[in-house]
Lab assay of single mutants.
Amino acid sequence: VGDQVLEIVPSNEEQIKNLLQLEAQEHLQLDFWKSPTTPGETAHVRVPFVNVQAVKVFLESQGIAYSIMIED
C-alpha cells in the first residue's frame, strides 16, 4: 500500500476553509492537484501513505465527502 489520491467534495464554504487549512499543514506533505474553490466541486489531493489515515479521520470528523481516486 502506498500513497493515495483522494477525490474530495466539499459541500459548503466552511468545508472549503477546512480543506485550505489542511493544505497549509506542511508536515502532512499533501499535494493538491486541484484545490477546493467552490462547494460541490471536486478537489484532488495526493496523500503520502504515512498520512492517509490522519487525513481520512480529519475529513470524516468534518463531514467532508471523499473517495479514493487512485490507490498506489
Rank of each mutant, 00 (worst) to 15 (best):
V47S: 01
E7R: 14
H44D: 01
P48G: 05
L28H: 03
S35L: 15
H44Y: 15
V57M: 14
R46C: 12
N12D: 11
V47K: 00
I70D: 12
L28N: 03
K34R: 06
S11R: 11
L19G: 00
N12H: 03
P36I: 07
F32I: 04
A24H: 09
Q25Y: 09
A43H: 07
D31Y: 15
Q53V: 09
V5T: 08
G63K: 06
E13S: 07
K56V: 12
E14Y: 07
V47P: 01
L19S: 01
A65R: 11
A65S: 09
I70N: 09
L28R: 02
Q29E: 06
K34Q: 08
Q25N: 14
V9G: 02
V45N: 01
I16G: 01
E26L: 13
L6K: 00
I64C: 01
Q15W: 01
E71Q: 14
K34L: 07
L30E: 01
E13D: 11
D3H: 14
A54K: 10
F58I: 08
V45M: 09
S61F: 06
V5A: 04
P48H: 05
G40C: 08
H27C: 10
V57H: 13
E23C: 13
V55C: 02
L20S: 05
A24W: 13
Q25G: 05
S11G: 07
E71P: 09
A65F: 14
Q21T: 10
L20Y: 08
P10Q: 01
D31G: 07
F32P: 02
A24M: 10
P48F: 03
H27Q: 08
V50L: 12
L20F: 10
E23G: 13
Q53S: 10
Q21A: 13
F49N: 11
G63T: 03
D31P: 02
V57P: 00
S35H: 11
I70Y: 14
S35F: 13
Q25R: 08
F32T: 02
I64D: 00
P36R: 02
D3F: 14
V9S: 07
N51Y: 13
V55P: 00
T37E: 06
I16Y: 05
E60S: 05
E41N: 07
Q15G: 03
N18W: 15
V57T: 13
D31W: 12
V50D: 12
W33V: 14
N18T: 15
S11H: 09
Q29H: 15
F58Y: 10
L28G: 04
Q62K: 13
S35D: 05
G2H: 11
Q53W: 07
D72T: 09
V5P: 01
A24L: 11
G2Y: 13
L20Q: 11
I8D: 01
H44G: 04
K56I: 15
F32E: 02
V57D: 15
M69C: 13
E23Y: 13
I64P: 00
G40Q: 04
K56D: 01
V45L: 15
K34I: 12
T38F: 10
K56N: 02
N51R: 04
K34T: 11
L59A: 00
W33E: 12
Q29N: 13
P39W: 03
P36L: 05
E23A: 15
V47E: 00
L6I: 07
V9W: 14
P10G: 03
M69D: 03
F32Q: 02
N18V: 15
V9H: 09
K34V: 09
P10K: 01
W33L: 15
A54S: 07
W33N: 06
A24Q: 12
V55T: 03
Y66I: 01
S35T: 11
Q29P: 04
E41C: 08
N12R: 02
H44L: 15
K34N: 08
A65D: 08
A65Q: 12
H44E: 08
E7K: 10
E14C: 07
L19V: 05
T42L: 06
A54N: 05
W33I: 14
D31E: 15
V9C: 14
M69R: 05
M69K: 07
L59M: 03
K34E: 11
F32N: 02
V47N: 01
T37K: 06
E23P: 04
Y66N: 01
L59C: 02
Q15E: 05
E14H: 09
I8Y: 01
I64K: 00
L28Q: 03
K34H: 09
E13Q: 10
Y66A: 01
E14M: 08
V45H: 00
D3S: 13
